[in-house]
């Protein structure tokens, strides 16, 4: 079974040479730490920076340079800053190649819910609805089940949706799954996790074809 860093490490393998990538808050942010050193990649943060760099050294924080999580960051050499409309032109216009974000629920048809739990304080969707509605390549980083042990990979989302039919890949603590033809297709198992474990933790339709390899991370 993978921890959060393990999930991030596996997702990092999906980041290809020449990609512009938008990373959501949480596990997705960790992905940047595991991207191969020999590929060219730029991270976009929707508040208005392309070429996001690491956190600043202590004493070098700049209140005018933050990411979408409102954390102080730095800009890489070659970075650019821009306004919010331009930022979402990059996203909506499909210039950003890959979006990695977290989710509360994903359904077998690619629906995603990650912004609202009825009865609880609603904080808002931020840029998530624009991101999921626009990107062709969306990877969800999440735990396979919630704290009560209930599957988060469902036939139908029970929570209010963030987007419909948009998720293409899910990487969890147990598995890598692809979504196509309204089904979850099992691609890889996490180290030490059996196909049966994954089947048991997946409420949605799970297609298992042939031998399922263990993740190489």
């Amino acid at each position: 079974m993978l921890d959060k860093n393990g999930i991030a490490k596996r997702i990092a393998k999906e980041v290809k040479n020449g990609y512009y990538v938008n990373l959501g808050i949480g596990i997705p942010t960790l992905v940047a730490n595991f991207v191969r050193d020999d590929i060219e990649v730029e991270f976009q943060s929707e508040n208005g920076v392309l070429g996001m760099g690491p956190f600043p050294f202590e004493g070098e924080e700049d209140a005018d340079i933050i990411n979408a999580g409102k954390q102080t960051i730095t800009a890489m050499p070659g970075a650019s800053f821009f306004d919010s409309a331009t930022s979402f032109s990059m996203i909506r216009g499909k210039h950003v190649h890959l979006t990695i974000l977290g989710a509360m629920e994903v359904a077998e048809n690619g629906d995603i819910a990650n912004w609202k739990i009825p009865g609880k304080m609603v904080k808002g969707m931020g840029g998530a609805m624009d991101l999921v509605a626009s990107a062709d390549n969306i990877i969800v980083a999440m735990m396979h089940a919630n704290k009560r042990g209930e599957s988060k990979l469902l036939k139908t989302c029970s929570l209010p949706l963030t987007g419909v039919g948009c998720v293409t890949k899910v990487v969890t603590n147990l598995a890598v799954l692809e979504i196509k033809n309204n089904q979850f297709h099992l691609l890889e198992r996490a180290p030490g996790v059996s196909v049966e474990d994954i089947q048991k933790a997946t409420e949605g339709t799970l297609i298992i074809e042939g031998e399922i390899p263990e993740m190489d991370i």
């Binding site: 956190f55 924080e61 960051i73």
Partner: peptide, 12 residues
């Protein structure tokens, strides 16, 4: 004032 909401830094 330019207040910082989430001060995140890295170690030298």
């Amino acid at each position: 004032e330019k207040r910082i909401e989430q001060r995140t830094v890295r170690q030298r």
